[in-house]
């Protein structure tokens, strides 16, 4: 009994630890004319409330695929919605022609490749995947 509790505690510790360590970076093309965005600016872009960067260029937000831990952390921290709430929010807009959700573009590597190629794109990846091909404009600790 005692052993299993200790095991459980260790598992929870590990879970908490891995959750805290996975920092998420919001990335754009290196040529973007700005170096940082606020959490609210990022959130408005991903919830379809604004369609362009503060500098004026039009923005194309992309998601990671459903089920990705990075996506869940991003939606919960920045958009303040869990996976179900996020889906319900977009279904209010999709079925009325009032908005289209960000496309699901794949994993860290796929989103990074898009960001490196498209000057209008904004996405998010695990911090460990960041390299010189993209610019980090916001970090979720």
């Amino acid at each position: 009994m005692k052993k299993s509790i200790r095991l459980l505690a260790a598992t929870i510790m590990l879970g908490v630890a891995s959750f805290t360590w996975a920092e998420v970076a919001v990335i754009v093309h290196p040529s973007a004319g700005f170096d940082s965005l606020t959490e609210e600016e990022v959130s408005r872009l991903f919830l379809g409330k604004s369609k362009s960067f503060p500098a004026g260029a039009s923005a194309v937000p992309v998601n990671q695929n459903e089920g990705s831990a990075t996506r869940d952390k991003f939606n919960e921290t920045v958009c303040k919605k869990n996976a179900s709430q996020y889906k319900a929010y977009w279904s209010q807009l999709v079925f009325t022609g009032k908005g289209t959700p960000p496309k699901d573009a794949g994993d860290d590597a796929a989103v990074k490749a898009l960001g490196a190629a498209n000057p209008n794109m904004i996405g998010y990846i695990d911090s460990s995947a960041v390299d010189a091909s993209v610019k980090v404009v916001y970090k979720i600790p």
């Binding site: 369609k51 889906k87 319900a88 279904s91 209010q92 079925f95 009325t96 022609g97 009032k98």
Partner: peptide, 27 residues
């Protein structure tokens, strides 16, 4: 960028939930 004009058959915006009345998942 912010405005659209639509023509055809539309949902009448009577209520707060009119737009997605049939989409139960949304509420």
């Amino acid at each position: 960028e912010n405005s659209k004009i639509r023509a055809g058959r539309l949902r009448t915006p009577f209520y707060m939930y009119s737009d997605f009345l049939d989409v139960g998942y949304a509420y």
